[in-house]
Design a protein around this nucleic acid. Structure first.
Length: 575
RNA sequence: GCGCCCGUAGCUCAGCAGGAUAGAGCGACGGUUUCCUAAACCGUAGGUCAGAGGUUCAAAUCCUCUCGGGCGUACCA
């Protein structure tokens, strides 16, 4: 485990003081305390807590006794108002006014930067995401990689990393032999211009139908791919044409989702380098011939062999992934590389990583397969080949249409409805996809995607818009020169504690590659705020109280905005 | 067969680098709008955390096994 010098807590003056006092009075190492210190589950228990379980070894006593003894030492003072043992926990209360002021002024001063950290500065993270196959439609099942990868991109960026987002397009491989063969048999340029992916896709489907009847087609396809790898001009021209048409279509969807890449170096990019990779694998004595194919035997590691070259000498995707990893390491010198790819490819990545390890590429330990579960229908999986697929575009369009309807019903006077409907509809789709843990399979459900109430993206967006509305109504500049002591409602305290936790949510989401952590954080923040909003007036006759509550509300607005932005979701000010 | 992943309320899921009393949302039922956006809020009902062992002061969380579902398992990606 990597211990960062800067964590979410290092900027916190209260934790610093607790750490200092524990070092001074009880001689407990700062690092130990920093790692352990946490927030108690409910407000009555204090503001911070030191669970004493881990101190058992140091003190040779049971945790309850340790907490009790530490509580009897005069640790309080300064900003720390009370120290209390609560079972095996040592709970600290701090000066509420100072805590409130610290949190709210920090958010106010840092604005869009609130939550950002520098722990990744000087380090590079590569994220390989989306990476769809050329010449096929983007289906809902392509959403996860794109949306998770894109969120991880922004989350890492917020932590100060240099991030390289790569769309490792599936633009190479046997399937292109199939496609080229199909096009030569049944395709036409006119039709292609009219509906590029539609035509390519049906050619692909037709190929598999026909190939069942006529196996010679498979042979023809393999030969075509072979020619492509050898650089045959005519074959290559067709391939390039398909690639350009596809990319143009893909970019429409990426634009709609607000997803960007630093490069589109797909599998084909490595074609010329492949021979070098294969040669070095041979030189290292790793590549052997088996059943006429070139493989790396991984039997020792309880894995099937890693296929490098087929009988007909054509390359395979493992070859290209090994090559790409080495190229990326040479080019970017990454400290972490994430492959956001479905869990059905787990074995593939284990094999690729193992081969790299055997090659002596010790940096492979910094590579991780960020796997995620399948998107399925109720009765089975989606398959492009069988034409069982829901188009991503269709999902986005439906969601936007639904957003439109709701706006017409609830806020017919809203300006630029189209724009807001798009932001909300797309936001709903992204949020839904991000809000389950990666590794779980998800069953595609129109009702879930088109639901805008409860734990959804629109709910968070709505809360944000509602806050914007309050700020508009207030209409004066927000100031930090307020009486912090006036914020004494329990929900106000809970909001402040939650705002303080935002940087921790970013770190947690990035570290575990689970954007769902940010989704949950935002839902919880919204939950507290909406309850507060429904029970208390923010703007009232009481000038001083209004100023304080406005500052608090503006901070919540700011954090919702920052959080949604990290997830790649727009933040309309009205909806 | 073997490997990996998942199994928490009727449904969908949080909670999982062990930690204080298992939480939301949807659906159901009942409430809240002369008031800053009701895409909201409040209340009621709903649990042997799949099952059985084990490790530990402490297990939904870690380990083992069983059951159920998914995925993968040499020339697709």
């Amino acid at each position: 485990m990597v211990i960062n010098t800067e964590t979410h807590s290092s900027k916190n003056p209260f934790i610093s003081e607790i750490v200092r006092r524990l070092k001074e009075h009880a001689d407990i190492e700062a690092e130990v305390v920093k790692l352990l210190i946490d927030v108690p589950p409910n407000p009555g228990m204090g503001d911070y807590t030191l669970p004493c379980f881990a101190l058992k070894e140091i003190f040779q006593k049971n945790p309850t006794l340790i907490a009790k003894e530490l509580a009897s030492i005069p640790l309080a003072g300064g900003q720390i108002t009370r120290v209390e043992a609560h079972g095996p926990y040592l709970n600290f209360s701090v000066d509420k006014n100072i805590l409130t002021r610290w949190v709210l002024t920090t958010v106010f001063n840092e604005k869009d930067s609130y939550g950002r950290r520098t722990l990744g500065s000087g380090k590079t993270v590569i994220i390989d995401y989306s990476s769809p196959n050329i010449a096929k439609h983007l289906g809902v099942h392509h959403l996860r990689s794109a949306v998770i990868g894109s969120a991880l991109y922004r989350l890492h960026k917020a932590l100060g990393y240099r991030v390289i987002g790569i769309n490792h397009l599936g633009d190479w491989g046997t399937q292109f032999g199939q496609l080229i063969t199909a096009f030569r048999h049944w395709g036409s340029e006119d039709a292609l211009q009219h509906d590029p992916i539609g035509v390519l896709n049906s050619l692909y489907v037709k190929f598999h139908e026909e190939a069942e009847k006529d196996p010679s087609l498979e042979k023809e396809a393999r030969a075509a791919f072979k020619k492509l790898e050898e650089g045959d001009p005519e074959t290559r021209r067709l391939w390039k044409h398909f690639r350009e048409l596809s990319l143009k279509e893909f970019n429409k969807v990426y634009d709609a989702l607000g997803i960007k890449f630093d490069c589109y170096t797909g599998e084909s990019f490595y074609n010329e380098m492949l021979e070098g990779t294969v040669e070095s694998l041979k030189t290292a004595g790793l590549a052997t011939i088996s059943e006429e194919a070139l493989i790396v035997d991984l039997e020792k590691y309880d894995m099937p062999p890693c296929l490098l070259k087929k009988r007909d000498e054509a390359s395979l995707y493992a070859t290209r992934d090994i090559c790409a990893a080495e190229y990326r390491h040479k080019t970017y010198g990454f400290t972490r590389m994430l492959y956001v790819v479905g869990s059905e490819q787990k074995l593939h990545f284990r094999q690729v990583f193992k081969v790299l390890e055997l090659m002596g590429d010790d940096w492979v330990k910094n590579c991780a397969h960020v796997d995620f579960g399948l998107i399925k229908f109720k009765h089975g999986r989606m398959s492009t080949r069988k034409g069982q697929i829901i188009l991503l575009e269709e999902v986005l369009n439906e969601a936007v249409t639904r957003a439109h309807e709701i706006i017409e019903g609830k806020n017919p006077g809203l300006g630029n409805k189209d724009r807001v409907a798009t932001q909300v509809g797309v936001g709903a789709v992204i949020f839904t996809d991000l809000s389950t843990r990666r590794t779980k399979d998800v069953i595609f459900d129109w009702d879930a995607v088109l639901n805008f109430e409860g734990e959804t993206g629109p709910y968070v967006q709505y809360t944000h818009a509602r806050l914007c509305s309050v700020m508009r109504k207030y209409g004066r500049p927000v100031t930090t020169a307020v009486d912090y002591g006036l914020l004494k409602e329990e929900d106000e305290y809970l909001l402040i504690r939650k705002l303080e936790q935002f940087p921790k949510a970013i770190e947690g989401a990035a570290r575990s590659c689970e954007p769902v952590i940010m989704c949950n954080y935002l839902l919880e923040l919204c939950g507290i705020f909406n309850r507060y909003y429904n029970h208390h007036r923010i703007i009232s006759q009481d000038e001083a109280l209004t100023r304080a509550r406005i500052l608090l509300s503006d901070s919540v607005r700011q954090v919702l905005r920052n959080g949604l932005t990290l997830l790649g979701i727009q933040t309309p000010e009205e909806m």
